[in-house]
């Protein structure tokens, strides 16, 4: 007994109580989310290791469904389409949303800000199904955009176009929040130190709002890969993503394949989200371990 373990002073009673209250507040929501999530995941896993025989679950453990989902060209194509549409929509949406968020951040007059905000967030007020039908009308023969965007309907570009529109407001919110945390004066300081507008964007604005960019990208990606109505309507059966495939398999009572694809969808989302998370660590001295080196 050398007293090493006494180095830490005991937590004061007040602090302990505060922590208890915090746990109590967090517990219900967390428990709800965890219970639902865990039970669904367990269910999916158990389904995914069975097979389908004449529209019924066939009980014995088997990896047949997994090898079907990962070995079949069509199934891999669906996975690949989902990933591609997700990444393209995410990049386009965040790139479009950034200047929009910047405008909202800079506009001083309250009524211009209100109007701009309404225009940007109004799509949320309309059902996704209605908006997707709207895009179909615009793109279908005789529609307003049928001329310049000929052949986009029922093809990937049309799906991407409509998805970007659907997700745009969700990207603006985290970006705007990030811009509002910009410390006062840093952009002017950069200008004063000789940075051109492009340089200020690259060396100050983007790095300092990176957490917002990552949050926006994660949100948009998660929403896009799980989107159902828009790709179903605008793809017209020719562009199939995982969420549609899951739906089709359930309709055909092929529960095991649907479970495998749902898990694939989850895996894709988790992998991509964690990659985004990594990105934000690279730029900021506050998050770097070494706390030394210089950035070129």
């Amino acid at each position: 007994m050398t007293g090493h373990d006494k180095a830490q002073p005991p937590a004061p009673v007040a602090a302990r109580r505060r922590r208890l209250i915090a746990y109590a507040l967090v517990a219900p929501g967390t428990a709800y989310l965890l219970l639902v999530f865990c039970s669904v995941i367990l269910l999916l896993f158990s389904y995914s290791f069975r097979t389908e025989r004449s529209s019924r679950l066939f009980a014995p453990f088997s990896t047949e469904t997994w090898s079907q989902a990962l070995g079949d060209d069509y199934q891999l194509g669906v996975l690949w389409t989902t990933l591609r549409v997700g990444v393209v929509v995410t990049v386009l949406t965040v790139a479009l949303a950034y200047p929009v968020a910047w405008c909202l951040y800079r506009v001083r007059r309250w009524w211009v800000r209100g109007l701009l905000g309404f225009v940007i967030f109004s799509p949320i007020l309309v059902s996704v199904v209605v908006r997707s039908y709207g895009w179909m009308l615009l793109l279908s023969p005789g529609g307003l955009l049928a001329g310049p965007l000929d052949g986009w309907l029922y093809h990937e570009p049309g799906v991407i176009l409509a998805l970007v529109h659907v997700e745009l407001p969700f990207a603006v919110v985290p970006l705007l929040a990030a811009l509002r945390t910009l410390p006062p004066g840093v952009l002017e300081a950069a200008a004063d130190l000789g940075a051109s507008p492009a340089r200020r964007l690259r060396s100050v604005l983007l790095p300092l709002t990176l957490p917002g960019i990552v949050a926006a990208a994660q949100l948009v990606f998660a929403l896009t890969v799980s989107a159902f109505a828009t790709p179903a309507l605008l793809g017209g059966g020719r562009v199939t993503v995982l969420s549609q495939s899951v739906y089709q398999n359930i309709q055909q009572l092929n529960w095991p394949l649907a479970a495998v694809q749902a898990l694939l969808l989850l895996a894709v989302a988790l992998v991509v989200l964690s990659v985004f998370n990594r990105l934000s660590r690279l730029v900021d001295v506050r998050q770097r371990r070494d706390r030394k080196g210089t950035i070129a």
């Binding site: 002017e188 300081a189 300092l208 706390r291 210089t294 950035i295």
Partner: peptide
């Protein structure tokens, strides 16, 4: 001051 918080 307006130092850049993300830079050393």
């Amino acid at each position: 001051g307006a130092l850049f918080p993300h830079l050393s």
